[in-house]
Amino acid sequence: MFYPNSPQTSPQLTQIPYGQQYAMMQRQIQQPYHPFATTEPQARLYPYHYQGPIQQEQGGFITQQSTAASPQYVQMRVTPVDQSIMSGYPNQTANGSSSSSFNYNIHPQQQQQQQQQQQQLRHHAMPVGSVPLQDDRYRKQLIVNYLAPDVTSTDLHELFSRFGELDGARIIYDKQTNMSKGYGFVYFCHAEDAKEAVERMSGYEFHGKWLKVGYSTNPLNIVPSNSSPYVHAGSRGAAG
């Protein structure tokens, strides 16, 4: 039997160049792979992502010199942007860049009308829970959420009447099932009393439920100042 490094198959040491006398086997001759043993700084910083320098080929596509990437890492192929796409944008300079302001050559009167329309939209648009300043009635009506099913309009009136005089209180019921929808409205005579009720009743436990109280901004629920107070009856038909 002959071994790869046996004296019968191995040459004389004098015939082997210096430095390879003890590297006779194939696994010894093959050098191990060192990912950080390279002179390129990109490979030292990113050993798993770097795959060699990027070269520009004919046709405008950018390719990489090395083989496919590892399945664990996804390499994105980048193509140059066609400058003709950006030619339609206004205020574009000769080098292809555009300024931040756009001039669509709008007539001054049209621009003024658009600004007025935007101001009107901001004036009428009102986020949930906010209180408008032009109508004091919005500051007097509250919406009470997360009410228990057994709470009546009379219970709601008695709960909030300790903060001040009320114009009314009612629970909203479903017309088909005649069941409470879980929320109601309270109408105060003074805005200061309503503000105190919002601050003190939010998070209050009532009939096993934690109440959420806020201003009601729905104009359909506003009680006119010259109208008669609501009837605080315990029956659902009268309260709904």
Rank of each mutant, 00 (worst) to 15 (best):
Y48T: 14
R162Y: 15
N226A: 05
Y46Q: 14
N91A: 07
L45C: 15
N5R: 14
S84K: 15
S225G: 05
L166I: 03
G240T: 04
N226F: 07
L45K: 15
T93C: 13
K175R: 05
P53V: 09
G129H: 08
Q8S: 11
Q120A: 11
A191S: 07
M126G: 10
S101C: 04
T93H: 12
H124K: 08
A239Y: 15
F206W: 13
Y50E: 10
G59T: 09
P7H: 08
R44Y: 02
I85P: 11
H124P: 11
T67E: 05
L166C: 02
W210E: 02
P90A: 11
L220P: 00
N95G: 12
Q15C: 04
A125V: 10
G59Q: 08
Q51H: 11
Q109D: 03
L45S: 14
G52F: 05
I143E: 00
N145Y: 00
R200I: 09
R200G: 04
N221C: 13
N218S: 02
G234E: 12
E57R: 14
G19M: 10
R77C: 04
Y204G: 03
P90W: 08
Q8W: 01
G237L: 08
R122D: 03
A23Q: 14
N105Q: 05
R44P: 04
H34D: 07
D167K: 01
S227K: 11
Y46H: 15
P90F: 06
L156N: 00
R139M: 12
L45V: 11
D136C: 14
M86D: 03
P90G: 12
P17F: 02
L220W: 01
P224R: 06
Y89M: 09
Q111T: 11
Q12H: 12
Y48C: 13
K209H: 04
G60F: 03
I172R: 01
A239C: 05
I222R: 03
S202D: 05
N103Q: 07
Q110E: 04
M25C: 13
V198Y: 15
T93L: 06
Q83H: 09
I16V: 11
F36W: 06
Q116V: 09
P224W: 03
Q58S: 10
M201R: 01
A37W: 03
A148F: 02
T177M: 08
S161T: 07
A125N: 10
A43K: 15
K140L: 02
S130Y: 10
H124I: 11
I222Q: 02
F206T: 01
I29W: 15
R27D: 03
T79L: 04
P149R: 14
L220D: 00
Q26D: 03
Q75D: 11
S227I: 13
S101L: 07
S216L: 00
D135V: 03
Q12P: 11
I54Y: 05
Q58L: 05
A169P: 01
Q8D: 08
A197G: 03
A233Q: 06
A94V: 11
G88D: 09
I143M: 03
H49P: 10
T93E: 06
K209Q: 02
F2S: 13
V128S: 07
T177A: 05
N145Q: 01
Q20F: 03
A197T: 02
W210P: 00
E165L: 14
R44W: 02
Q55L: 03
C189K: 15
A197H: 00
I106M: 12
S101E: 07
K140W: 01
V128M: 05
T63A: 11
F2C: 13
Q28R: 12
A238S: 09
Y187V: 02
S70C: 07
R139H: 12
Q72D: 11
E199H: 14
F2M: 15
K195C: 14
F188I: 02
K181G: 01
S66M: 06
Q118H: 13
Q176W: 14
P41F: 04
Q75M: 01
D82G: 11
